[in-house]
Design a protein around this nucleic acid. Structure first.
Lengths: 252, 252
DNA sequence: TCACATTCGATTAAAAATGATCAATTGAAT
DNA sequence: ATTCAATTGATCATTTTTAATCGAATGTGA
């Protein structure tokens, strides 16, 4: 049995039954235990499995490919997000210094930004598109969050201290009348906070599915920001938000 | 059987059964194993397949723009760079905190890094692969340099001040006996300097084509670093470098 | 804690595959 | 016709892979 075949075999067996012993694999592939051990060492190096005394166990690939994760999220409320993004981008003037949060809605903004805007972002997925549009781009530092490709942590916050913004565009997971704005990851919340504090104006982009939701980490009060959301069937639903702060309603 | 026919045949067979041995291909095409090996080397260079000891395996054509641009640059001195990278990675122990410079040679290191290493980098192109390998990754901030996807400028240098490294791996464009190490972009040079200063050990990865060259921006003296380079035909060529500093010579 | 059985990793030797080299062949250009 | 470069196949030293062995390390149960 050839080396790559063996590797594939080992991985597929592990994927199926989560664990396998060296003996088991040795017998199934008709090779020596030495060979299996070498294979396991190699595959562990590659991060494909975790070894333990006697065998190995399946390891979930930590990051799904960028495209699939984004593609999946894009499908949800895509039209609303695009409309919100387009409106948000229309607020930007050439020469403005912006903070552009990681996330799909802010990602859509890039296409409609005026040339000459200067962008600071914590979203790795934004970079490619920003460069294609020849927009001067700065990235903050920090630890790379696998799932969303956002930069978080101390490094991110420290980096942000070097910038001041005219406008700050944040994505958000929860918008609640009493609990304010919130997001699931505390580290990410802290980054949003810091960016908001460094900005003259703060805009929060949230489609209607986020309204009334609360998640774990508090970011800031609704009074501190302008909320940009989309048209909902029941118009009166938005009234209490309008009493709290400035709300821009976009029709997709 | 003519060369292009053979290549087509090899690829179609691989597409069908994913793997094939040299023997198998040699028999099927009625050519010598030498010829098949030459074919496989060529096709691997073109990124059409992956070779392994005993044969080759099918490689899915990747459509990502990022990889193609890298793939193009890979063609130059690829074997040397890979060998240098592999050696450099072998110096890393699990738990080490590293700075990994942007660039193709350092990119190759990622595959061979031990799991458990902690990486700080200024290379955006490295991120994807690092995450695939489940390596804890920090990105420094800064302005994004379009061409090389490296982070540079004040933000980058400021970010670096938050880190200390066990080992620092730098790519470099010029290695000169008198002029020391140099790179074309002053901003990039400053980032390399800062990273080197924050590290206990500094390694410079440079294939033989960089030796004797000088470019615009000085980075540091050769005495301050360990040079990792590849075997050259004229061994004595390396002697003066060895007198200056520690040199590791790698055979591709 | 100790003894016992298993498993591990380093080492070794043999087999297989590789890359480098060289001579022979082919085909094109002069 | 002759030269030259490119392709090929054969040869051989070197490298890689493999399986077997054995002391050390690890887990298990009393």
């Amino acid at each position: 049995m050839l080396t790559p075949e063996r590797h594939r075999f080992i991985l597929s067996l592990l994927q199926e039954q989560k664990v396998a012993t060296v003996q088991e694999l040795s017998a199934a592939t008709e090779t020596s235990e030495s060979t299996i051990r070498r294979d396991l060492v190699q595959l562990e190096q590659e991060g494909k499995l975790t070894r333990f005394h006697g065998g190995a166990q399946w390891r979930e690939p930590s990051v799904k490919s960028e495209e699939t994760t984004i593609a999946q999220r894009l499908s949800q409320h895509e039209a609303e997000k695009r409309a919100i993004a387009r409106f948000a981008a229309s607020l930007v003037k050439s020469g403005d210094c912006l903070f552009l949060d990681a996330g799909t809605t802010t990602f859509y903004m890039i296409d409609d930004l005026p040339p000459g805007a200067i962008v600071v972002t914590n979203g790795l997925t934004h970079i490619e598109r920003l460069l294609e549009r020849n927009i001067k781009t700065y990235l903050i530092g920090g630890s790379v969050k696998g799932m969303t490709k956002a930069l978080i942590g101390k490094g991110a916050v420290e980096s942000l201290k070097n910038y001041r913004f005219d406008k700050c565009f944040l994505g958000i997971n929860g918008v609640h009348l009493e609990h304010g704005l919130s997001t699931p990851d505390p580290e990410e919340a802290f980054v949003k906070q810091t960016a908001a504090n460094a900005s003259t104006e703060v805009f929060v982009l949230a489609d209607h599915s986020k309204l009334g939701k609360t998640t774990f980490s508090f970011v800031c009060e609704m009074e501190d920001v302008t909320l940009i959301t989309n048209d909902v069937n029941d118009q009166q639903q938005l009234d209490p938000y309008k009493k709290k702060t400035k709300v821009e309603v976009v029709t997709p």
